[in-house]
Design a protein around this nucleic acid. Sequence first.
DNA 1: AAGTGGTCTAGACCACGCA
DNA 2: GCGTGGTCTAGACCACTTA
Lengths: 246, 246
Amino acid sequence: MGTTQLESVQEPKYQHLKTVIGEALDSDFTVGEILPNERELAARFGVARATLRQALEQLELEGRLQRRRGVGTTVAPPRVGVDVSTTQQVWPGVGDDAWLAQDAIPGDAPVAVARLLETAAGEEVHLVRRLRLSQGQAVAAELLYVPAGSVPGLDAIDAPVGAARARAVLCELQNLVLDGQDRSVELGSARADDAKELDRLPGSPVLVVTTRYLSGGRTAAVSVATYRADTCRLTFGDSVDLAMAS
Amino acid sequence: MGTTQLESVQEPKYQHLKTVIGEALDSDFTVGEILPNERELAARFGVARATLRQALEQLELEGRLQRRRGVGTTVAPPRVGVDVSTTQQVWPGVGDDAWLAQDAIPGDAPVAVARLLETAAGEEVHLVRRLRLSQGQAVAAELLYVPAGSVPGLDAIDAPVGAARARAVLCELQNLVLDGQDRSVELGSARADDAKELDRLPGSPVLVVTTRYLSGGRTAAVSVATYRADTCRLTFGDSVDLAMAS
DNA sequence: AAGTGGTCTAGACCACGCA
DNA sequence: GCGTGGTCTAGACCACTTA
């Protein structure tokens, strides 16, 4: 009987809160339902609002909650599986309508990308901006770096601008032979521009997928795609989307 | 008081701090160097410690800093690339010495895993625990779920325990024909046991790699591997590890 | 024992979405 | 204008590492 208020042995309050709220989400709430506001919840659990927020933050990180300023906190639907497999080796923009080309402008690559491109740091590249939609929602923002040298045909007809220009760059790429590609995934936080596209706050956690497109023994293009970490599950291989409940 | 000078145009302090510190890391610090402590830094930038911590948190999330209680904050080395490609379709424990088998115990799968295994919720499974090392550091903790039905030969010789038993389960798996596998990556937060293995605090961000091993038209095993998000970059395909500086 | 990062409090004000 | 989550403060104490 002396073991009543145990649990708290060396376990932070916010972590215990996370467990309690997490269980409540499973049993007492349905997807889309809105929770009481933070001040109310903090009072109900007898903690400071900052502590309560620490718990909510982790639950949001795990994709169980969705918080929107001015609106409230809602129970999140299961993460959507987004296919990022490399089994079919193709240039970006070929046959997949998941991506929406936005625009293309001249610019230069940041040092990290320049290293992947194996180009001189200052070499001019085309910056192609694309947005990936899934079920009507923006799930990823991509910045595709294409060295001017990779698409020599583009300078001739320099007419198009905006989305048309983006498509033109992608189209030019297809004239090259794609030898291979490789990909890496890491955790990052959203830059201001990406955050805006993804309807998230700057700094929110994202999964950064970096793809290198190889052609003729060199890197012909590099894509840096920023996926919403809260709502996305990246799938590889022939994985089928499960978790279709409700 | 209108202490707001400029820069602060709608940009949170912690975000600006992040930028400033991030730039300082590039120019004034070297990998492994320890930063001034949080109270000192907060005072230097004229903000509350909580605000300073918000900036440090994001920098740690991006793998630029490493913080350890009782020790201090140090500049993190570049993330290590960890290969998780599925090009070579093999059972776990075959020919890759990256993983260290720890033990195997009987148990049952949580509902999410049970759904992947397509088994009855209560069916007995072997829980195989493994640890992945990279450059002497633990980078991932794995829990492999193997339904008892997948390895019928194991019950006969039930002798080994601990790491030996784990290896026995993996060995039994190799008697099956591996038809395929698929993988997914998502963001999670470390459970207490995984956190301990990875030398992180519970709740710290991790990349969860879920692998389904298919054999004979069904799911013969499911692996849930938890990678440290701060220090790891997951690589797919034939990507070469760059960024070998120092 | 000293010093570090981690947790927690009780306030305050701000930016945003919506009626 | 009101209610929401987001930012920020100035403290306090705790858990951990190291000497």
